[in-house]
């Protein structure tokens, strides 16, 4: 494959069906395949038990689907990066979503609701990693922990709490929590953003800065 300029990629892929377009499509498929295999190799731990053939088939499917997606979105390429870098983001998005689907299985809003008390209990505990309580800092820390717990409980609605628990406290993926809440990833981000803004405003209303609170925990 000889290197192509952005203009050459656009020209060849937009051409009428023929030799130039077929060659460009073949090159694009090949680049996408190489890119996605790098990504899958970096995430081999998510593919434990997958043999070479299964990985090859997954990569081929992802490359094929992405070629179609790119052809539909060619008009969206504005030349702000190399064409190939632009193209790789589509296949990496698909591959990342696929691997996340492999990791999670049917999380539900009910499950997040049930896990909420324990998740907050763990995050807002007044004990350190070894289960110890430092008497010198205990009072101040407990005050801040209880304050945040109270603000979360009184200011956030059920879905906002579930989103905070799933994404920020349990470390689940956005895709997984979005699916549990019946939302798109974009809508979940907005839900979380609104929740964080609300928590930030309530802390500001009490004239508490980040530094004030962290000082009690990092001393």
């Amino acid at each position: 494959m000889s290197p192509r300029s952005n203009e050459n990629w656009l020209w060849a892929l937009s051409e009428q069906p023929g030799e130039a377009q077929a060659e460009a499509l073949q090159d694009l498929r090949e680049f996408l395949l190489r890119a996605v295999l790098v990504y899958l190799t970096l995430h081999r731990s998510d593919l434990a038990g997958w043999g070479r053939q299964a990985v090859h088939d997954l990569a081929e499917d992802l490359a094929q689907e992405t070629v179609l997606e790119i052809r539909e979105n060619l008009a969206g390429f504005r030349g702000e990066s190399k064409f190939t870098t632009w193209a790789y983001r589509f296949i990496i998005n698909r591959a990342a979503s696929e691997l996340r689907r492999q990791r999670y299985r049917n999380l539900s809003l009910d499950q997040l609701r049930e896990e909420e008390p324990a998740a907050f209990q763990a995050a807002l505990s007044d004990r350190d990693a070894l289960g110890r309580v430092d008497p010198d800092q205990m009072v101040e820390r407990r005050y801040y922990l209880n304050l945040l717990r109270e603000i979360v409980e009184t200011e956030l609605n059920e879905r906002q709490r579930a989103a905070i628990v799933g994404v920020h406290l349990q470390g689940r993926s956005m895709d997984e929590v979005a699916a549990a809440l019946g939302l798109s990833r974009n809508a979940l981000y907005k839900l979380l953003h609104d929740a964080r803004k609300r928590l930030k405003a309530r802390l500001a209303a009490r004239h508490l800065s980040e530094g004030d609170i962290l000082a009690a925990f990092e001393g």
């Binding site: 995050a123 350190d128 928590l199 609170i213 990092e218």
Partner: peptide
């Protein structure tokens, strides 16, 4: 336990009035 609390706290204080959504970031 405190690491989780501190991480959450940092995310809260880093929150901007308006933030880009996932689609625009991608």
């Amino acid at each position: 336990a405190h690491e989780l609390f501190i991480k959450l706290l940092r995310k809260i204080y880093a929150t901007g009035e308006s933030e880009l959504d996932c689609e625009r970031v991608r």
